[in-house]
């Protein structure tokens, strides 16, 4: 069947209009739950960094977060890299802080939180809220074996965390992802020296 240009143009216009309309409707329908999910993911991440994540359900994450997390301040700093410093409250006192970090990985930005105890002597945990490293290589920093290595490490002013066997702890980097691994360490150390122990900055 031969058809002219007018028909082709007409057909494409109608098809595009129908598809765009259908997608816009789907987007509007899904938007509320997409927004809720984003918030929930962020809250879950903060709880993980503070070391209070035990496979909580969505509902538990909301209540736990509302109960025990409040905006906090470490050494007077309440905000870093556009994210608030958060405090883990228990009985009216802050027992730990989630300090935001941000830096560059091999491919793109790395963002997340480092949990530290209120007396600034130990880490609580590490979590990424944004990373885009190569899946299967650098992307493995988001696997739990890697993140779990950052629990309860000793921290102090002027001392940097490092991979390998250290006197009090041992951290393994990701195989085949040297750049991403060192970027993570550099970013965390930057956050420690600039926010947690700011006097040490040269």
């Amino acid at each position: 069947m031969k058809r002219g240009h007018v028909y082709t143009l007409f057909f494409m216009t109608i098809l595009t209009a129908v598809l765009v309309f259908a997608l816009a409707a789907a987007y509007e329908a899904f938007k509320p739950s997409i927004t809720t999910n984003k918030l929930l993911q962020e809250q879950r991440a903060v709880l993980y960094a503070l070391g209070i994540d035990d496979d909580l359900s969505d509902e538990e994450v909301r209540t736990r977060y509302a109960e025990s997390v409040q905006p906090g301040a470490v050494g007077g700093i309440t905000e870093a890299y556009g994210q608030p410093v958060l405090a883990h409250m228990e009985g009216g006192n802050a027992i730990a802080y989630a300090v935001p970090f941000e830096g560059s990985g091999l491919w793109g930005s790395l963002r997340g939180y480092l949990g530290i105890t209120a007396d600034l002597t130990e880490t609580r945990g590490l979590v990424f809220t944004y990373q885009n490293e190569t899946p299967g290589l650098g992307g493995r920093i988001d696997e739990s074996w890697f993140k779990e290595q950052f629990r309860n490490l000793p921290i102090a002013a002027g001392v940097e965390l490092a991979y390998g066997a250290n006197p009090e702890y041992k951290i393994d980097a990701v195989t085949g992802a040297t750049q991403t691994s060192s970027a993570v360490m550099r970013t965390i150390n930057k956050s420690l020296s600039e926010i947690v122990f700011p006097k040490e900055v040269k």
């Binding site: 494409m12 595009t16 598809l19 997608l23 789907a26 987007y27 899904f30 999910n37």
Partner: peptide
């Protein structure tokens, strides 16, 4: 072109669905 358009529309739908119900 038509094939690509239709396929892309369904893929966007899958993407939105995953974002809404299986965010992880």
């Amino acid at each position: 072109l038509v094939q690509t358009l239709v396929i892309a529309a369904y893929v966007i739908f899958v993407d939105l669905f995953l974002q809404a119900f299986l965010p992880d």
